[in-house]
């Protein structure tokens, strides 16, 4: 076990991954409020798996040794492309001919998960990377992620802030929004694309497990803590940041797998929120 002093002295090791984790935690926490309120938690799970599949597919294509084609496929671009395509499909296609929307999303989740495992089995060179992507066991992040993830977080955060009234309106009462000639399809698709971009970028940097946890647990906890919508957004983003930072800290000092440690911290916030609600009900 590492002492707190040793941890502080090792700042050059944890500074970048913690910054990336905090940025991902904040923006996942914000977007996650819409994920939870729209009851599409399973969509975020499916998207993180599709994103993992995109990265695994890139490793696989690289392993095929197809020369220029393999070199041309950028892991991030392929992952983001597949995830955005899946998100737009989930957002716009609501009628699946007698099959529920949840059924199709479940199908997408299972296909992507199975494909990642199958591809992982075929990639000996990148098997460790596949495990990192799935469970977020990597303790370091790629240098470009230090710029990519915070930039995406700032851009998505700005869009969410500018169009907050509109995203809340469309999520709460889509019928009235259509009646008022709001661009409902564009807003729905935009929200899903933002979830996809954030999920794809954050999954590649941190792993599918913590990203799914950040999208679901901080917003759920925030909804237990407060009944004010604006405060739900603030609390959720704050708990996303704290889950990432504390998760990385405990991972560092206790030598725990990073992604699991971050997800566990998010679980602690959820349990705290649930307990708070139960206590408040009894008082």
């Amino acid at each position: 076990m590492i002492t707190f002093g040793e941890f502080l002295h090792s700042y050059f090791l944890w500074r970048d991954p913690m910054l990336v984790g905090a940025a991902a935690g904040a923006i996942c926490g914000l977007l996650g409020v819409y994920v939870v309120l729209r009851r599409i938690i399973f969509v975020s799970a499916a998207l993180t798996q599709v994103s993992s599949f995109g990265v695994a597919l890139t490793f696989y294509i690289e392993g095929l040794g197809l020369g220029a084609l393999s070199a041309a496929v950028h892991p991030f671009a392929l992952s983001i492309g597949l995830t955005v395509a899946a998100a737009v499909f989930f957002a716009l296609k609501k009628d699946y001919s007698r099959i529920s929307r949840e059924g199709i999303i479940g199908f997408g989740f299972l296909v992507a998960s199975a494909a990642v495992v199958i591809l992982g089995d075929r990639i000996t060179k990148g098997s460790h990377d596949i495990a990192s992507i799935l469970f977020g066991s990597a303790v370091v992040v790629a240098p470009e992620d230090v710029y990519i993830i915070p930039s995406i977080a700032i851009a998505v955060g700005a869009i969410l802030l500018i169009y907050m009234k509109d995203f809340v309106f469309v999520s709460f009462d889509e019928e009235s929004a259509r009646l008022f000639k709001y661009p409902v399809r564009a807003l729905n698709a935009g929200l899903m694309v933002m979830i996809a971009v954030v999920a794809a970028a954050a999954t590649r940097a941190l792993g599918a497990l913590p990203v799914f946890a950040f999208l679901a647990l901080p917003p759920l906890a925030a909804l237990y803590f407060t009944e004010r919508l604006k405060l739900v957004f603030i609390l959720s983003a704050a708990m996303g940041v704290l889950s990432a930072v504390l998760g990385y800290f405990f991972s560092f000092v206790l030598s725990l797998p990073t992604g699991a440690s971050m997800a566990m911290c998010a679980c602690v916030f959820f349990i705290a929120g649930l307990s708070w609600r139960e206590v408040r009900k009894r008082v």
Partner: peptide, 9 residues
């Protein structure tokens, strides 16, 4: 018509 999950005032 409205989802009771939404904490709107």
């Amino acid at each position: 018509h409205f989802d009771p999950l939404f904490p709107v005032s």
